[in-house]
Amino acid sequence: MAFTTYFIYKAILVLAVFAITLLVATYSTYAERKIAAFLQDRVGPDRAGPFGILQPLADAVKMFMKEEMIPSVSNKWLFILGPSLAMLTACLTGVVIPWGKSLFIDGQEFSLQITDLNIGVLYLFSVVSMGVYGIMIGGWASNNKYSLLGGIRASSQMISYEVAMGLSIIALVMTTGTLSMKEIAAQQHGWHWNVLVQPLGCLIFIICAFAETNRAPFDLPECETELVGGYHTEYSSMKLGFFLFAEYINMFISSAVISTFYFGGYNMPFIGRWVHDPNMLAILGVVFLFVKISFFIFFFMWVRWTLPRFRYDQLMNLGWKILIPLSILNIVITGAVSMRVEILEFFTK
């Protein structure tokens, strides 16, 4: 492929992923309000446009127009750095997710993944582990006790659940034998979804994803009954918007990662029987992936408006005393099952 073609194709792909991420996150705020309203037997936003469909635009305009306040005693640069980092780390993850199979145009292959790192899973994990800095720096730079407590809660929660998340990924990597997201997605064609191989690991991963995105029932960092607004108490205008928006982007990316790791990614069983054109298959794959992602976003919201919030000690007990031992058990079982022939030979010899 010529360099200019390559460059244009990658630039378009990056821009498309970025735009779609922002669009989905924007409309997640609308979906969240509508779903909350549905679960609480209300109507929800219905003033801006038909069915309130323009509500996110109205919200964005409100966020931009609000007065910008920087507390005079805070550290200005770090105060600005906090929400920027939160947004940056949220957007970085989309790079390694395989959004679909390759398109073939004029005999040239155009992969629908921005880059296929051979350590894609680890890249994902390192970006997730950097996500805590935005919240911590924002919470500290506000120079407010509630913000600091919120930031510290967030960081200790994220560190604790990262451990269990990493261990559940290790079991997944043991069965797939690769760290490349593209191969993990490609291995799950037909019915070979990883959730059937790793049900326990999948459950642990989903719970940890909830904790990592600071979503209910793990939204203690912004627990308004105890901490006013948590780490974003002192923020106003679009900086607050960035923090809130980063949460929705994280939710979208987590849904994409859960779908890719455990629920087949862009694969759909039996579709190969009816559709034979590879380009058509690739486009349908993107559609299937987004259907799965939409389901998981709905699941995130469903849980938020159903379950009450944990107490902090319960949260820590769940993370350290239940999820980590369970994920280690999962690793041991996975190892034993994959070595079953050798183990049987050892005992029958």
Partner: peptide, 14 residues
């Protein structure tokens, strides 16, 4: 990145 920047330095900052 995961171990040093993502875990150890977070604890330091903490």
């Amino acid at each position: 990145i995961i171990v040093y920047a993502g875990a150890i330095m977070v604890l330091f900052l903490f």
